[in-house]
Amino acid sequence: MWQTIRRWFDPQEMRSVGRTPDYRFSLANERTFLAWLRTGLALIAGGLAAAQFLPPLPVRHLREAIAIALLLLGGAVAVRAVDHWSRTERAIRLGEELPASRFPAVLALAVGVGSLLLVAAVLVRAIGEW
């Protein structure tokens, strides 16, 4: 684990493996990382917005729970983004297969299920008031 974390931060170590690829590949890898980072930042902004702009919800602390879930999800996306960037860079330098990942599917499912739960909550409340 420490070895992995050291790889994220050590440019020398990364440049020591394999051969330097066409710089456009490295730049594309970096842009993919940045797109993931913005996804994480959007989740964090969403969590902070939920905490600050939602009215208190009928279920106690539900607002805070939504906010904290979004914030932690955003942090996880950022950490996973740098790990994936580092492993992809290695694979490009070594001419290996790019690392496969289930993370995008898991994230998409989590966001989808979360939205459905909120839709259900809104509907239940609307029917209850009606």
Binding site: P21, G47, I68, G75, A78, V79, E89
Partner: peptide, 30 residues
Amino acid sequence: LRTGTRPVPLTALATAGYALLGALLVLRGM
């Protein structure tokens, strides 16, 4: 044009830091 540079991991670390700080602030507000 160089690979393996520090801004990449450090920006990710900063983002994770904001996530933790935000969670802490929301918890404190409860």
